[in-house]
Computed example of a mutant assay.
Amino acid sequence: MIVWFTGRPAAGKTTVATAVVERLQAQGRSAQLLDGDVLRREISQDLGFSRADRDEQVRRAAMAARALADTGVVAVVALVSPFREARAHARALCAPHAFLEVYVDAPLDVAEARDPKGLYRRARRGEIAEFTGIDSPYETPESPDLRLDAAALPPASLTDEVMQRLR
């Protein structure tokens, strides 16, 4: 199975995805996190933030997730993946495995207020080009398998929602 977390930067994707992996492992399930920031540093160093590069990042993450799922590991992906078409392509690439798209919904003002890495501030000052939510769009999923209200609920409650859905 692949659990694909999508949402704006600083929405809480990695926080919830990490907790899901920990809970799955505590249940004796083999699970692995594929985090967008880590993937950028390791297998996607050659990519920028153009639409084509973002789509390639999603493709690479999907291929890695499928490879994990092929071996019986639950692949948990935390990746902005801002474009609907790329997310649909990821789902198709991961077939025949079950694919759960989880939209971590944090409005722009909430994500900006969190901003643990200072990325929104830097983007607003013009230091980061093509930043999702500022000068590059985030296309909200039209019908995600699960929508998490990250503005209203704490990470533990969001994790509970995902785990309930996985049961």
Rank of each mutant, 00 (worst) to 15 (best):
Q27H: 07
L39C: 10
E22L: 14
V76Y: 03
D70W: 05
L68K: 02
E42T: 13
R54M: 02
A19M: 15
R87H: 08
R84D: 05
R40V: 10
Q45K: 14
T18H: 15
T71G: 14
Q57R: 07
R84E: 10
G48S: 05
R60T: 00
V21T: 01
L33A: 14
Q27W: 02
A75L: 12
A69F: 01
Q27T: 11
A86T: 05
A67I: 03
S44R: 03
E22T: 14
R84N: 09
L24I: 04
A88S: 15
F83V: 10
A19L: 15
V76P: 06
R54F: 05
G36Y: 03
R66E: 04
A65L: 00
Q32I: 10
A78V: 04
Q32V: 08
E42R: 07
Q25W: 00
V38K: 00
A61H: 01
E85Q: 15
A86V: 06
A52I: 02
M63D: 01
A88V: 12
R40T: 10
R29P: 03
Q45T: 15
D46W: 06
V16T: 15
G72M: 08
E56F: 11
P82F: 02
D37C: 12
A19W: 13
D46H: 13
Q57G: 11
A67V: 07
A26H: 10
G48P: 03
V38A: 07
D55V: 12
D35A: 14
D53H: 00
R91S: 06
S81R: 08
V20L: 08
A92S: 09
R91H: 05
Q25Y: 00
S81K: 08
D55K: 08
D70I: 04
R59V: 04
D37E: 12
G28R: 02
R40P: 11
